Amino acid sequence: MKFRSTASTAPVPGSRRRTRTIVVGALPVVVLFALTGMTRIPGTDVDLTVPFAAEGEGPTFNTLGEVDGVPVVDITGVDGDELDQTSGNLNMTTVAVRTKMTLPQMMGRWLASDDTVVPLETVIPANSSADEVARQNAAAFASSESNATVAAMNHLGRPLETVIYDVSDGAPADGTVKTNDVVTSVDGDRVTLPSDISDAIGGKKPGDEVTLGIRRDGRDVTEQVTLGEMPEELQGDADVEAASGGNGRAYLGVTMVAQPADGIRVSYNLRDIGGPSAGLMFSLAVVDKLSPGELSGGEFVAGTGTIDADGTVGPIGGITHKIAAAEHAGATVFLVPRGNCDEATSKSYDGDITLLAVDSLDGAVKALDARNAGQDAETCS
């Protein structure tokens, strides 16, 4: 018997009708499962979710208040009279992101809410899993906490130092550098901030030896570390490279954070929050608690914005949702990164909320002080 291979095969009479009947008959089943919220038909590989995400109003937290009985921003190591009593609100804001939606769920968010429907890759980049994005957001949140402390201490004129937060398993520094070590010098040159250390290491190559001056348990010691090759998964992201004790090819393998050098300790106690956009409000809370007066003026102030160690405030995503969430929570003033002003004013809000334009921590403090004094402060217009 001979067989003939062809690129296409003519249908057997009646087969096209049967195929159409099967497909049409399956549609009500697919729709039924989608309407019930199921994301996959049981016993099959049929995925009912759509490649879109919905962004909307998320929760807002007063950085001067408490969560579960613990201060959101907790400052220790200061005399009682040095820690200022605060009132009012300095609220950080968030965006709620919904993924793994069926088509009816996505259409419901689009038609019956103020959510913004965006392509899924704007939330979870291609070739990244939701878990990877969550880890990246957690790292960005930790970085924003460190930057918030550094910016606040610089604003207040307080000294800083760099402490080892973590040592990666199997990294060049593993077994030599320890968690809670304070790094005071690199090859004899004094260092203060994590960027000083990453810059010093960035001038070296794998295989070079570096001498670290360290203060450990109250004693000054020196440790020699032979630098390794920057892992491929860390290459290309300057922030990650710097936070890992490297800047380019050379790699130390530690996570470093700046902390006050005068015994003050600042901890941030929000959990399950990701991303860098809380930086400005965290920094303002630290400044408010360590300086006389009340930045809020007793009002409900909210805001958002990334913050660099030098106090620069950067734009964020979802600004209109954050403003709406803050207004619904009772805010009358919202601090908007200047780069978000056009987007922030593209929408009208339910009440009368003042949008102050800021581009630095110093500028945010000045804007709030001016408002408290009854003076004009720059607004988004």
Rank of each mutant, 00 (worst) to 15 (best):
L212M: 09
S8A: 14
V365Q: 03
T162A: 07
P11E: 04
P59T: 10
L234T: 08
P337D: 06
A152N: 08
I201F: 05
D84I: 06
V177E: 00
D239N: 15
S346Y: 12
D239S: 15
A54L: 10
R190M: 14
Q259L: 13
P125A: 06
G25K: 05
G80T: 06
L355S: 00
D169T: 11
S277D: 06
E121R: 04
G218H: 08
V313R: 06
P206Q: 07
G330I: 01
V186S: 04
A373I: 00
G245V: 02
E299A: 05
G170S: 03
N91A: 15
A7Q: 13
G37P: 09
T21R: 07
D359G: 11
T39D: 09
A130R: 14
L32D: 13
S144E: 06
L368Y: 00
V210S: 01
F52G: 03
P59F: 07
S128L: 15
L227P: 05
F300Q: 07
A238P: 14
V97D: 07
A171N: 00
E327N: 08
Q259A: 13
I197K: 04
R4A: 12
S277W: 00
T354K: 08
Q105I: 10
K204M: 04
A309Y: 09
A344W: 01
L32C: 12
G43P: 11
W110I: 15
Y349H: 01
G363N: 03
S15P: 13
D310A: 13
A309R: 13
F334M: 02
A250S: 01
P337G: 04
G65C: 02
S185D: 08
G157F: 14
I273K: 06
E378P: 01
E145M: 14
V286R: 01
A148C: 09
T192G: 09
V23N: 15
V29C: 14
P71R: 08
R135M: 12
F300W: 10
G228D: 02
L27F: 15
R338P: 05
G245C: 04
L120C: 12
D262A: 09
M107Y: 09
T176H: 09
L270E: 03
E209W: 10
V24H: 07
I264E: 15
L156G: 15
L27N: 14
V358W: 03
I201P: 03
T320S: 07
I41V: 14
F52M: 13
N180D: 12
A96M: 11
K178R: 11
E209P: 08
A34V: 10
I264N: 14
R109H: 06
E161S: 15
V70N: 08
V221F: 11
K178A: 12
L295C: 00
T76E: 10
T60P: 13
R20F: 12
Y251W: 03
S360G: 06
S143K: 04
L270W: 03
R109I: 15
D81Q: 12
A126N: 12
